[in-house]
């Protein structure tokens, strides 16, 4: 993403102001105060998001647990920073710090597959084509996004839905296309305008979902 670099474009107007600035202590004080304020904002958003999503976490985790119990697998994906958060979530399921490992993968992990698909069929299909190759009707597709509207993700969800997979979307802002689209079974929306704060809440939501899946798996085991 590129755009006008405001501070550099207008900096020439105030050469004395900025060149004369030598007071690091006051900058450091401002930076530390800003860090605490942003962290408090992040924590408040995490609390409100978890409260608003509590019921959806339960119903989604119950369905995910049923699918894992029947041999289902999870495929997680996203773009940019969200692709790394999706990879962290897949890693939490597959290599958990506690509890039983569950089959889960990040669909951005293989550069050969991503570049082959991006080059040959277009970037919008990089995840959908992988789901066509690997996905079964017991599986789970999880996409993390801040806009909720990226074309490669919505195309992948449409494909996952056609194949009978459970579709779980994480979005920010007003939920974007994920919230409007019938292809997303469970849509977790973090209601914020800040990409960073959205991702911090999505990480905690993903953690909650993982913990709830394990609780439901334990219940399924007891019932048998």
């Amino acid at each position: 993403m590129t755009g006008p670099e405001t501070s550099e474009a207008t900096g020439f107007l105030y050469p004395f102001l900025e060149a004369a600035e030598r007071d690091h202590d006051s900058l450091l004080t401002d930076l530390a105060a800003s860090a605490r304020a942003k962290a408090a904002e992040s924590a408040a958003l995490q609390r409100s998001t978890l409260a608003a999503s509590a019921e959806l976490v339960e119903t989604t985790a119950a369905e995910m647990a049923r699918r894992f119990a029947r041999g289902g697998r999870m495929f997680a994906f996203g773009n940019g920073g969200s692709s790394t958060d999706a990879a962290t979530l897949a890693g939490l399921f597959a290599r958990p710090p506690a509890g039983r490992p569950l089959p889960a993968w990040s669909l951005t992990a293989d550069q050969a597959v991503i570049t082959a698909l991006g080059n040959d069929v277009g970037f919008d299909l990089v995840f959908a084509r992988q789901l066509i190759a690997r996905g079964r009707d017991t599986d789970i597709a999880v996409a993390m996004s801040t806009s909720g509207s990226s074309k490669d993700l919505t195309v992948a969800f449409a494909e996952a839905k056609r194949r009978g997979m459970l579709t779980v979307g994480f979005a920010g802002y007003d939920g974007g296309q994920f919230a409007a689209d019938g292809a997303v079974d469970a849509c977790f929306v973090v209601r914020s305008q800040s990409v960073h704060r959205i991702q911090e809440s999505q990480a905690l939501l993903g953690y909650r979902l993982w913990a709830a899946v394990h609780e439901h798996l334990a219940e399924l085991g007891e019932r048998q």
């Binding site: 004080t29 930076l31 105060a33 605490r36 962290a39 995490q46 506690a98 909650r208 913990a211 394990h214």
Partner: peptide, 29 residues
Amino acid sequence: MSGPTREATSAAALIDDGLAADLAAASLM
């Protein structure tokens, strides 16, 4: 270790004055 438990630490609550000062100094560097 037993299975996963639900409560998860909100790291935002862990950023105290010391860590905020560390972040400030690291960012300036």
